[in-house]
Design a protein around this nucleic acid. Structure first.
Length: 476
RNA sequence: GCCGGCGUAGUUCAAUGGCAGAACGGGGGACUCAUAAGCCUCAAAAAAUGGUCCGAUUCCAUUCGUCGGCACCA
């Protein structure tokens, strides 16, 4: 009997290069996916690109490019992350401009429409002539555009399609009530509960006039409108696994676990769930909300110019050290401060001095004192490790592995197999063999964290060789 | 402004109504299988004020600080 596990990231918008925050999201999801694989699940890890909407359209025009071409270039950058971050082979990559996605979005729309949840409504937008942009409430200061506060905003009336979100408040609360861990961590669920209970839900606009902004998925049966970008974007979570055409695939994988940033709580935990209810599909399995990465206490932003490209860390340290840092050294649920100095300190302490050195000291003893590589029995990873992953405590799962590394260092110091071997060869060999096998089990657990290193260690053990060069050279 | 969280060693975190734990970083030591690594050891902390209690870091209140949420940003 096959077991299926589906996990997805949010799909990034294609108006900037991949930054370290997204690298964290995809690598943590990759960690979970790989761990599930070790437990014998069939796995799909989904990611991709969100490509429609005003910003892409505008940027493409500015660059004098066709929007599709503009999006193509960015999509390639995100697709390349599979190799650059060493993501699992079970990765799927969806683009919201893929034909099957667009068809799925239209089918989804039609079903919502049939359910009576989509209707046309007069909609007032405020337009700043100075910016030549529509302005939302949150962008205004005292009812005026902060950049052009001397000018009055124009009010433009237009018809938009709306989704009957207001109808789903009670059903959403019921979903949360029945699944207290639906959103992890708990305080994020509380935020959304509070919002529904105290403020209520308003229907939201899900279309744009094509005459103003044509870069979107065509609304079925209305040539004048395209879908508002995130309505179509959310549907990627199910179009990627075959909905609606391939129902065998869809039924096998859905519902799945979703990773998302803290700015995504409402969209993922409420809007998307209401959309699924409208179409009669089961809700997501779980929504895991991570914090952001700050730079020296400051938010990462283009305008500040402090955006960190994860590939710089890869260039300086390698893929595995980046993965290590993002899996173990960031706070999963709160914001984490990032600096190259922190990377260096963590790298030296735990990869060079910790893991790398341990591999050298054990494998040197093995190479010099064991005639052949020990027979590797079926290794079982301690259940505790998987338990942490099941509760999405990724930091703790990694801590568990490093506790093991610390214990082995201590064991060597206390029992001194390197001395015992000189006086009692049989006993010394037994001790070293035990260490090698224990190291193999560590390598097994390292597979989801440091896939390349895990393979390297296993190869050393199987050939009974100490590493020719340090696995992780100390950085000074 | 409203709602909620948090404020513990230099840093990142933990536990607890009864002498506050870890990791990293810093000082010192003995060793040598190892990447000047590892091991042992030392120094190092409860924002402030008041209250409840035999006793509070832990509970309550206030102040200060800080972070998050308060919808069309994708």
């Amino acid at each position: 009997m096959k077991k299926f596990f589906y996990i997805t990231t949010t799909i990034p918008y294609v108006n900037a290069d991949p930054h370290i925050g997204f690298a964290m999201e995809i690598i943590q999801a990759d960690f979970v996916a790989r761990t599930k694989k070790l437990q014998g699940y069939e796995v799909v890890l989904n990611t991709g690109t969100d490509e429609h909407g005003q910003k892409v359209y505008k940027k493409a025009l500015e660059a004098g490019q066709d929007p599709q071409k503009y999006a193509d270039a960015y999509a390639e950058k995100f697709r390349n992350l599979k190799l650059l971050l060493h993501l699992t082979d079970d990765l799927r990559f969806i683009r919201t401009t893929d034909e099957h996605h667009k068809k799925a979005a239209q089918e989804f729309w039609s079903k919502c429409f049939e359910a009576g949840d989509i209707y046309l409504k007069e909609y007032k937008v405020r337009y700043c002539v100075g910016c030549e942009l529509e302005k939302t409430d949150s962008e205004l200061v005292e009812g005026r555009c902060p950049i052009h506060s001397d000018r009055e905003l124009e009010i433009i009336e237009e018809k938009n399609y709306f989704f009957r979100f207001s109808k789903y408040g009670p059903k959403l609360l019921d979903l949360y009530e029945k699944n207290p861990n639906f959103v992890v961590p708990e305080f994020r669920l509380n935020e959304i509960k509070f919002l529904i209970k105290e403020k209520g839900l308003e229907d939201f606009s899900i279309s744009r006039l094509k005459s103003k902004m044509p870069w979107g998925v065509q609304v079925p049966n209305d040539p004048d409108h395209v879908m508002y970008v995130w309505f179509d974007a959310l549907i990627n979570y199910i179009s990627t696994i075959g909905w609606p055409d391939n129902s065998d695939s869809f039924l096998a994988w859905w519902p799945g676990v979703q990773f998302a940033g803290k700015d995504q709580v409402r969209q993922q935990a409420a809007m998307w769930q209401a959309m699924l209810m409208s179409v009669g599909l089961p809700p997501s399995k779980k929504i895991i909300i991570h914090g952001f990465i700050n730079i020296a206490g400051q938010k990462m932003s283009k305008s500040v110019g402090n955006v960190v490209n994860p590939l710089h860390i890869v260039d300086e340290y390698g893929i595995d050290p980046l993965r290590y840092y993002l899996i173990r050294e960031t706070n999963q649920f709160e914001d984490s401060d990032f600096s190259m100095d922190r990377v260096k300190i963590a790298y030296n302490a735990n990869l060079a001095n910790g893991l790398g050195n341990l591999v050298s000291r054990i494998m040197k003893m093995a190479q010099d004192n064991l005639e052949v590589a020990p027979h590797i029995p079926d290794i079982s990873i301690p259940q505790k490790f998987f338990d942490y992953v099941d509760t999405y405590e990724i930091n703790k799962a990694a801590d568990f592995v490093w506790a093991e590394i610390g214990e082995m260092d201590q064991y060597i110091q206390t029992n001194q197999p390197f001395k015992v071997i000189k006086t009692d060869k049989a006993l010394g060999q037994k001790m070293i063999t035990d260490l090698v096998l224990r190291l193999y089990s560590v390598a097994d657990m390292l597979n989801p964290i440091l896939p390349q290193t895990s393979d390297t260690i296993k190869a050393l053990i199987k050939t009974n060789k100490s590493p020719e060069a340090p696995l992780f050279l100390r950085k000074d």
